[in-house]
C-alpha cells in the first residue's frame, strides 16, 4: 500500500513537474526594453512626405549634367531681405505670414546622387557564436523583405539605412530550413542585453553595437514602420523567426527582434 501511494505521488509529481520545470527554466521570450521603445521616433515614414530625399545640404557642385549651362550655382539660403521698413526679422506678424528666414533654392538639374556608405558584409555576435556573411537584399514580389535562401547567410535591407546612420538598419536571416538545418540567426533567441554585435562593411570598416532589447513579436502585429524607420537615432535591428511553428503554414508565428545601439 505504501509503495503504491508513493508511486502514485511520485508519478504525478513527475508528470506535472517535468513540463513545469521545463517551462520555468526556458529563457524568457523577451528581455530588455521593448522594440517600440528603442527604435526610431513616433514619426511614421509617410507622415513627412515632403522631406527631400536627396541629402539636403547637397551643394550642387556635382553638376555633371551637361544640359544646364545657364543654371547658376545653387543659391545657398537666399536670405530674404525684408520688405522696406519691416525691420530686420521677417517674422513680424503679418496676415498670412510667410516662412521665417531664408528659403533654400537649389539647382533642379538631374544630380548624380553621391554614393552611399559601403554595405555591410559580415555580422558577428561573439557571445552567441553568430558569424554570417551579409547579402544586400530588397523585397519579394509579395512585398515581404527578401531573406537569403541559404540559412548560413543573412540579408541586409538595402533600401533602408546602412548600419550606423540615422534610422534602423535591418539584418534578417532564416532560423532554419528543412534541408539545411539551423540557420545563422538561430542563436538570436538567446540574445541578452549587453551582448556585443559587430558589423563589418565591404571595405573593412567595423561598427560596434550593444544589444538593448530582444522581443518575440507576432508577425501579425510586427511594428514594421518602426522596425524599418529611416530616421531617428541609429539602431541595428536583427530579425529571425521564433515562437510556435505552424505546420499548416510552413512557418513560425512570431519574429524574434533584437535591437542594438551603437557603442560609442
Amino acid at each position: 500500500m505504501r509503495p503504491a501511494a508513493a508511486t502514485a505521488v511520485l508519478g504525478v509529481a513527475l508528470a506535472v513537474g517535468v513540463p513545469t520545470a521545463w517551462g520555468l527554466t526556458r529563457p524568457p521570450a523577451s528581455v530588455g526594453a521593448s522594440v517600440e521603445q528603442v527604435i526610431g521616433t513616433a514619426t511614421a515614414p509617410s507622415s513627412s512626405p515632403t522631406a527631400p530625399t536627396s541629402p539636403a545640404p547637397a551643394p550642387s557642385t556635382s553638376r555633371a549634367v551637361p544640359s544646364s549651362p545657364t543654371a547658376p550655382p545653387s543659391q545657398a539660403p537666399s536670405s530674404q531681405a525684408p520688405a522696406p521698413g519691416a525691420g530686420q526679422g521677417s517674422d513680424t506678424a503679418e496676415p498670412a505670414p510667410l516662412p521665417a528666414g531664408g528659403i533654400t533654392v537649389r539647382d533642379a538639374a538631374p544630380q548624380v546622387i553621391p554614393a552611399a556608405a559601403p554595405a555591410p558584409a559580415r555580422l558577428t555576435v561573439p557571445t552567441l557564436g553568430v558569424d554570417a556573411a551579409v547579402d544586400a537584399v530588397g523585397v519579394e514580389p509579395d512585398g515581404q523583405m527578401t531573406v537569403p535562401a541559404e540559412v548560413e547567410r543573412v540579408g541586409w535591407y538595402r533600401f533602408g539605412p546602412v548600419p550606423g546612420v540615422a534610422g534602423s538598419a535591418v539584418i534578417a536571416g532564416h532560423v532554419d530550413s528543412r534541408t539545411q538545418g539551423l540557420g545563422a540567426m538561430a542563436p538570436l533567441r538567446e540574445a541578452a542585453p549587453g551582448d556585443e554585435v559587430l558589423v563589418t562593411d565591404a571595405v573593412g570598416g567595423t561598427t560596434r553595437w550593444r544589444v538593448v532589447a530582444r522581443e518575440l513579436i507576432s508577425k501579425q502585429v510586427l511594428p514594421l514602420d518602426r522596425i524599418f524607420s529611416r530616421d531617428g537615432p541609429p539602431r541595428l535591428t536583427l530579425i529571425t523567426c521564433g515562437g510556435p511553428f505552424l505546420p499548416e503554414f510552413g512557418s513560425y508565428r512570431d519574429n524574434v527582434v533584437v535591437v542594438a545601439e551603437p557603442v560609442p
Binding site: A172, G181, A186, R189, N255
Partner: peptide, 22 residues
C-alpha cells in the same frame, strides 16, 4: 524628389520548425 517610402510587409524567417517553441 519627394520621399514617401513604405516598409516591407513582413520578414519571413524559417520553414522547418526545428526551434518550435510551443
Amino acid at each position: 524628389t519627394i520621399s514617401s517610402h513604405s516598409a516591407p510587409s513582413g520578414v519571413p524567417g524559417g520553414t522547418a520548425g526545428l526551434v518550435d517553441d510551443a
